[in-house]
Design a protein around this nucleic acid. Structure first.
Lengths: 163, 163
DNA sequence: ACGATATAGTTTAATCCTAAAATATTTCAG
DNA sequence: CTGAAATATTTTAGGATTAAACTATATCGT
């Protein structure tokens, strides 16, 4: 030992600060998500995963194959099977055979599914706008930029880890 | 109709911007969380909920009642039952009777649970520090402040909604 | 002491979610 | 053409999650 060192080196403080930031990011995200889930449940008797599937199909009016759907939503294949099953039961989507490939099928919104989604999507935007009402346009830009930095880094770490 | 209006009023642009920001926040949070879940799974054969329970118990070495645990983690009562069951099976925690109240019981870390958690917690901090490496101390402060604004607003909206 | 109410925890039913195995079909090399 | 490999999807097994129902115990007013 040459010299007594400061008790908490700068890098350790920064490390703890980043850890607290991650906990805050997680909490904020979960709170907002919980808020939206709750309103979807009580006001539309539906769930976020169902809403997400409808949103993906709304953006693709030709329909999407199951694998395209799970790719777009970044969830597992088997997961989508169950959610689409329930949406079919409720008449919001249909499965359509793909001509020329008997393995695949397209999932498409029905008229009912489309109109239900449009109603919910408009309200959803209002909810989000209310929750983020404390942020100006500049705040949004700053927050967006910082989150992108983190997300790029998380994606890179995941691919290094072989996901 | 008095005057032709601009096609996209400022408030609509801001509303869409906030919506995009929410989608980005959600994606970033899920990507980081997925990254950490994956490493907990492959490197320690455990899950984030289990890690969270161990962390809460580590901070409370006298142990926590089931209801205190679910309160601290903000998850439902029944949820904690299953997670603690599995931790008991693995010998990481024990359930201890509370003298004077035969309804309640304390959950406490075992020696094994404590040492396992310490190992994981150190690595966990390293992972997080790596993912957030692109942010300076000032970035962290800014991001933290903006997230707090959003979270306060989400909490307020939830309580208004009666949660 | 007694009955109503509150509290602690578990169970149940439903959905979500993943990884891995299984099934069916297609593609492609030889 | 045929068999191997690739692709599309479902099924399975296990855990996480919630709300609501349920069991057991405690508390409190009268």
């Amino acid at each position: 030992m040459t010299q007594p060192r400061a008790r908490a080196p700068r890098r350790d403080i920064l490390s703890k600060q980043r850890l607290r930031l991650w906990l805050r990011l997680l909490k904020t995200s979960r709170d907002v998500e919980g808020n939206i889930r709750e309103r979807l449940r009580t006001q539309y008797d539906t769930t976020l995963p169902r809403f997400d599937v409808l949103a993906a199909l709304y953006r693709n009016d030709k329909g999407l194959k199951m694998s395209e759907l799970s790719g777009a939503l970044r969830v597992s294949n088997g997961n989508v099977t169950g959610i689409v099953d329930r949406l079919v039961t409720d008449g919001a989507v249909v499965r359509v055979a793909v001509p020329g490939d008997r393995r695949a099928q397209l999932v498409r919104l029905t008229k009912k599914g489309m109109s239900e989604f449009e109603t919910m999507a408009a309200e959803h935007e209002t909810w989000v706008n209310g929750i983020f009402a404390g942020l100006t346009a500049d705040d949004c830009d700053r927050l967006m930029a910082l989150l992108e930095v983190v997300d790029d880094s998380a994606a890179a770490a995941s691919s290094r880890n072989g996901e």
